[in-house]
Simulated assay, not measured.
Amino acid sequence: MSDETAIAQLLYRYARAVDTKDWQLYRSVFTDDAHIDYSSAGAAVGGRDEVADWLAAGFGTIPWSMHYITNIESDVTGDTASVRAMFYNPMQLPGMAEQSACGGYYHHELVRTADGWRSRSLREDNVWFVNAPGRG
């Protein structure tokens, strides 16, 4: 399998983990010491387990979400890769009658491990949000 295909599969596994609320699968996308930054969406920043626990506690209230990850650009250098990918995420937020959606970019720093590619750093760049809670 090419590096680009394996990297795309990792990002798709990330999307499936979040949308199915499978936090063990979510953890498997990252290295043990990974740093995750969702601050552009007003969400958690921290280590893999800290962020996974935060998502497990709060994301469970979201009835559904469906992440689409596209336009994956990978710059592979040996056993590391810098990745930029677009995301589009329609979702149903609790207490809201209309669907919400957001989009932007994921910036990953990946490392090749014995188990394949893993993210050691994820920074979300949330560019837009439609029908956000608390924003008339």
Rank of each mutant, 00 (worst) to 15 (best):
H67I: 10
A43C: 01
S74L: 08
G58K: 11
A41V: 02
V51E: 07
G58V: 04
D79H: 06
D33H: 04
E50C: 00
S40Q: 02
T77R: 13
I72S: 06
S82N: 15
M91S: 15
L55S: 09
N89G: 09
D53I: 01
G46Y: 01
Y38C: 05
T80I: 05
V51A: 09
D75C: 08
I69K: 10
D49V: 05
V76C: 04
G42N: 07
L93N: 04
S65P: 08
I72A: 07
D37R: 07
L55A: 14
G78D: 10
I36L: 15
P94S: 13
M86E: 11
D33F: 01
G46T: 07
M66Q: 14
S65V: 11
F87W: 07
D33C: 08
H67L: 13
G58T: 10
G58W: 02
E73L: 15
G46C: 06
S65M: 10
D37Q: 11
G78M: 07
G78S: 06
A56F: 00
A56M: 07
A44L: 03
G47W: 00
Y88R: 06
Y88G: 11
M86V: 08
H35Y: 00
H67K: 12
M66R: 13
A85E: 05
T61C: 10
V51F: 02
T77V: 14
W54K: 04
A57T: 14
S65L: 12
N71D: 15
V83Q: 02
L55F: 15
N71G: 12
L93G: 07
T77E: 14
T80C: 03
P90F: 05
R84A: 09
A52S: 14
V83T: 10
D53P: 00
T80K: 03
T77F: 00
I69E: 13
D32G: 14
N71M: 14
D79Y: 01
S40L: 04
N71P: 10
G47I: 09
I62K: 08
F87T: 05
M91W: 04
L93H: 02
V51M: 07
S40N: 05
W54G: 04
M66L: 14
M91C: 15
M66P: 02
I72G: 08
I69L: 13
I72T: 13
V83P: 03
T61W: 04
V83F: 01
S39P: 09
D75V: 11
Y68P: 01
V45N: 01
A81M: 05
W64Q: 14
S74V: 12
H67A: 12
L93T: 05
S74F: 02
A34V: 07
A44G: 03
S40D: 05
M86D: 14
G58H: 13
R84L: 06
N89I: 03
A56Y: 00
G42T: 08
A57F: 00
H67Y: 11
